[in-house]
Simulated assay, not measured.
Amino acid sequence: MPAQSIRQVIRRLEQHQIDTLYVLFGEEAYLHQEYLAILSQRLLEGAPRDFNFDVLQADSDGLAEALSLARTLPMMAACRVVVLQGIHQLRKADVRQLEQYAEAPSESTALICTSTDPEIKKVPRILQQNAVTIACKRLSGDQLHDWVVRTATRQQVRMSEAAVEAFLQDQDNDLFLLSRELDKLCTYAGPEGDIEPADVHAVCYASRQQSIFALSDALGSRQIPRAFHVLEQLLQQGEAPLLVFSMIVRHLRLLWSVKTLTQQRQDAGRIAKTLGLPAHVCRQMISHSRQMSSAQIQRLYQTAVEADLAFKTSNKPPQAVLERLVLALCSDA
């Protein structure tokens, strides 16, 4: 069955056309989360959620429990919803159990399977044929533009075309971060408000300029004073230390990925597309990766692992742990 958009699926549900099998596939975690919330809300329609909604991981035990629940009649509801996350991790022996269920699914259950594999062809063939498939791929270009407009509209806020362009300028396509910035903008505008470029600059400019890209650039170029300056500004803006830490870890993972892809002689355009990075950010990451060996990047990541342990086990203030990490990352030679 060809992949459908979430809008097409919603239209079917509005017409009370409930399917027994759904598959969400793709690498964009935010869309997985968003689409699961939409589907579960529409499918249950006010039914007792505690009795009719279950989420399980696709390991051997989770699969068996998920299929058992899927065969159980709903309670005081027309439909039961069972979510089976991570079917790309199933062993071949377990895949057969899922295929057998998909051949004759329960008519009173909507089984939603998720896979972070970007290709639908990696999903079991019987699911490709019988399930409603929805792509959750990284957004860019017009798709990212439309997502911003839809997200603002859901919050009863109108964004001009110029405001959308200003908002997306120099932004990464990380939907979790973009969603946070949009929430700030929509709160600033208020219900039924209008957002123009001036509003974007008033609310988002500082956070963009002092975003993880500025911190990443400072870390990548080993500029200790600048790195501490950007870190201080991020914390003063109210960013949680653990969120900043997760941004740093993401930077290190991207640095490793860029290093690996450049060693495979992939060009900047292909790397940017593979990793979902804006072109100028990708060029920046390539430049930084060339200044480090693979062993150095591995050491930096190990330093971040040690900082993660310090967050969880030491009595040091989170800001102190972050500052120590930034110093270590900038000082490694």
Results as ranks from 00 to 15, higher is better:
T313M: 13
L261H: 11
I297S: 04
F311L: 13
G238N: 05
P317R: 15
D267S: 05
C282K: 00
Y301S: 02
T313A: 15
F311T: 01
A307Y: 05
A304I: 01
Q319I: 10
G238S: 09
Q319L: 01
L277V: 07
I297E: 10
L309D: 14
M285I: 11
D267R: 08
Q237S: 12
D308T: 01
L255N: 06
M292A: 07
M247Q: 12
Y301P: 00
S287R: 11
S289Q: 13
L275F: 14
E239V: 04
Q263H: 01
Q233V: 09
Q298G: 06
I248H: 04
Q291E: 12
L234N: 07
A310Q: 12
G276T: 10
D308F: 03
S246A: 10
S314W: 06
L234W: 00
V281Y: 12
T274M: 07
S257R: 10
R250C: 00
D267I: 01
M292D: 13
A268T: 08
G238L: 08
Q284S: 14
A279V: 04
S294F: 11
I248Q: 02
C282D: 06
G269K: 13
Q302M: 11
M285K: 11
E232P: 00
A320L: 14
P278I: 07
A310P: 01
R299Y: 03
L252N: 03
P241N: 08
L277S: 13
L300N: 09
L261V: 05
Q298H: 10
F245D: 10
S293G: 14
G269R: 11
H288P: 13
A320F: 03
L243N: 08
V281D: 02
L300K: 07
D308W: 01
T262E: 06
P241E: 03
L309N: 05
A240Q: 06
I271C: 05
A307K: 04
V258T: 10
Q302F: 15
A272P: 11
L243F: 01
R250S: 05
Q266S: 04
A272I: 01
E232V: 00
S294T: 02
Q264K: 06
A240G: 01
V305E: 15
A307H: 09
L275M: 10
L235C: 05
A279C: 00
H288E: 14
I286W: 07
T303W: 08
T262C: 14
H251R: 08
G276W: 06
Q236S: 10
L300G: 11
W256H: 02
L255S: 01
K316S: 10
S257N: 06
R290E: 15
S294D: 02
